[in-house]
Computed example of a mutant assay.
Amino acid sequence: MNEDATDPTVMEALEWFVRMRDDKVTAAERQAFEAWLAADEAHAEAWKHAQALWARFDIMQPEFDRLRRGPPLLSRRNFILGSVAMIGGLGGLFAIDQTGLFAEHKTDIGERRTISLPDGSTVELGSYSALSTHFSEMERRVELYRGEGFFDVSHDPARAFLVSAGDGTTQALGTKFDIKFVDDLVTVAVSEHAVQVQGRRFSDLRLEEGWQVSYGRDGLGQPTEASLDTVEAWRSDRIIFQDVPLRRVLAELERYRRGRIILMDSSIGDIPVTAIFQTARTESALQTIADTLGVRLLNAANYVTLVYRAG
């Protein structure tokens, strides 16, 4: 995440930026802004950062102009803060998840769908997931671009069944298994029989029934015993977290709602979360997290929810 967008002084500059762009700004407000700008060299530098961030987001200028003619200042304020938070935290509007753009099978936010594959296997796709199939006489290959799928594989000794996700591939050994690919981390959990997990950055691993393992930028993690009820809870429209870091909880909740969730303070990202949430009630889940962990939420006009340390 861009550190400029998390700096308190830059956030204060963004507040001034919004107020100064409003047609109804008063002379007293302009005077107060000039005083704030002159009070500290850091303020002037933060103001430059705020202007630079908005310049990178000029694609939203027509929408901002529309908002200026209608809704009250709070809506305009939230719109700009949300817009700048998106570019500061995510590198631009068009960088927001282009993975799986041309996928063969996709689910929308909140959608769960079972797909029958040509060989008789099935895959249940979770919310906001995408995959494509590449079947030939030699092998059965599935590419999971994002999200989660539960695979029930038909036996075919002549053709391996392979699921590619991220930097690794999981080969079915006559089995049922779950693969989740969220926020650059892939987690494989075996419900029945076994799989072989292989990748360019790590040695092959045979994963047995009742076990799970994750891999990502740091390579392959250590296998751990899986709570299959927890792993497969999404198939019953629930999400179960057991001592999961807050940053990963937010990434998971984001798959079940419109708009982005941005952690504005990395120091709270490792706070463990243990909870059960309904996938259809993510707003309630976020509020529960805020009330329980003492964090603050700012919902910016439904474009983005910013998560801060309270106080």
Rank of each mutant, 00 (worst) to 15 (best):
A280P: 02
V18T: 14
S236C: 03
V163I: 15
G91K: 09
R260C: 12
H155D: 13
W211N: 09
L73G: 11
S136A: 14
R201C: 04
D22Q: 06
H193W: 10
R258T: 11
Q51G: 13
L263K: 08
S266I: 13
G259Q: 07
A226V: 04
E63K: 12
R159W: 10
E41L: 13
R141M: 14
F202A: 05
F17W: 13
L74V: 12
L246V: 04
M11I: 14
I240T: 08
V231W: 06
L263G: 09
Y303I: 03
G174I: 00
G89E: 13
V182N: 08
D22G: 07
V273F: 13
L144I: 12
A32I: 01
G89R: 02
A28L: 14
L14Q: 09
A55D: 15
K180G: 08
E3P: 08
A285D: 08
V295H: 08
E29I: 11
Q222T: 08
Y145S: 14
D184A: 12
S75E: 15
R159T: 03
M86A: 08
W54R: 01
V190Y: 00
Y128N: 14
R141D: 13
S267L: 12
L286T: 05
T224C: 04
T6G: 10
D184F: 05
Q51Y: 02
G120E: 06
G174D: 03
F33S: 02
R260K: 15
L286F: 05
L37S: 09
A233C: 01
K180A: 15
M138S: 15
R257I: 10
A310G: 04
T305G: 02
T224L: 07
S284H: 05
D167Y: 01
A290M: 00
A35G: 04
T170E: 04
H49M: 07
V153N: 09
H105L: 09
L246A: 06
V84K: 07
Q242T: 13
M1W: 11
N78A: 12
H43T: 06
A44W: 05
I80A: 14
G174H: 01
D4R: 13
L298V: 12
S236H: 11
M138G: 12
E209S: 06
V25K: 06
L263R: 09
T274R: 10
R296G: 01
G120K: 00
F161I: 05
P245H: 06
I262W: 09
V213W: 02
F94N: 15
V190W: 00
E254F: 10
E252I: 01
N302W: 00
L74Y: 12
R140S: 07
H49C: 10
V197G: 02
G216N: 06
F177L: 05
R258N: 15
S227H: 06
T99E: 14
T9C: 11
R113Y: 10
H105D: 10
D243F: 01
E254L: 06
G147R: 08
S136K: 00
E124G: 05
S127M: 03
L297P: 03
L297V: 04
E252V: 09
G147S: 14
R77P: 02
D237C: 00
S227M: 04
R238F: 07
V190F: 00
R76E: 15
A130Q: 06
L73W: 14
A130H: 08
T169P: 01
L306W: 06
